[in-house]
Amino acid sequence: MQSEIRKRLIEAFTNAGQEYLSGQYLAETAGCSRTAIWKHIEELRKEGFLFEAVKKKGYKIVHAPENVTADEISFGLKTEFMGRSIHYEEKVDSTQKIAHRLATDGAVEGTVVVAEEQTLGRGRLDRRWHSPKYTGIWMSIILKPNLPMHKAPQLTLVTAVAVVQAIEDVTGLLPQIKWPNDILIDGKKVTGILTELQADADRINAIIIGIGINVNQKLEDFPEDILHTATSLSVETGQVISRAGLMQAVFARLEKLYLTYLKDGFYPIKLLWEGYALSIGKEIIARTVTGDIAGKALGITEDGVLKIQQEDGEIRHVYSADIIINE
């Protein structure tokens, strides 16, 4: 975990923008000696931060490294609680597992577990999620909403909208959502979201939102079996995208939408979600464990449940399925 001093130091540099900060000022803000500040700056340099130091003026961060440690994520973060507590790991089996443990141990709302690499990243029905080193965002966010349990699934749609908006903010791409929360660019998957609930009887203890975003993979980085169904933001834009910057955008968007959702309910989220929806009005097949439901996707209900009109006119409500779109 990031120390309090480090947190305050990074925050001071974030707030300073293009201004230089003196050693004296930093020491006062962070609540430590100037020697300690100097040591922290040295450590940040080793992590890859570049500082510009000007005599009598002080320090300025001119470059943040391309990792997603707590320091990089905090530098530039403008949220109240989302992503304010970062648990960073170089390599994990699954960030969800760690987040579950932290949530049980009383982690605060908005705590994020992030890793450079996941060895056992997983998706729906335990399907593998390919999460190689330094290329994507593999993270889990802990939320602790005061919500009745049956409303919890709506948060997966809230998250999908937040991630789409963040991708738009950072890259200018226009991703779409495939029900309930897959994010696609030109029909190829760029983000998967899987949410788990921690509850005692009827009370939500924590909601753990796992998000995998393909950011800087090159085409050749994708395994053969997903080569034609997956893409990355870098493949789509031809640029290298700052993962820490994208995470900050996700946190900012998610915090705002989450608070809107808690205050005003699902309706405003539904409108946004439908604005990004890929499948509405199209002929689709909903592949469920017990069989396929084919028909026209009409939209979602006030709860976020998918409505499909079958050929015989009957309208089916779908809670769980893989959606296949007939182009």
Partner: peptide, 9 residues
């Protein structure tokens, strides 16, 4: 129990 990719053990 799953709904909309929220998994509840």
């Amino acid at each position: 129990v799953e709904a909309m990719k929220l998994f509840n053990e």
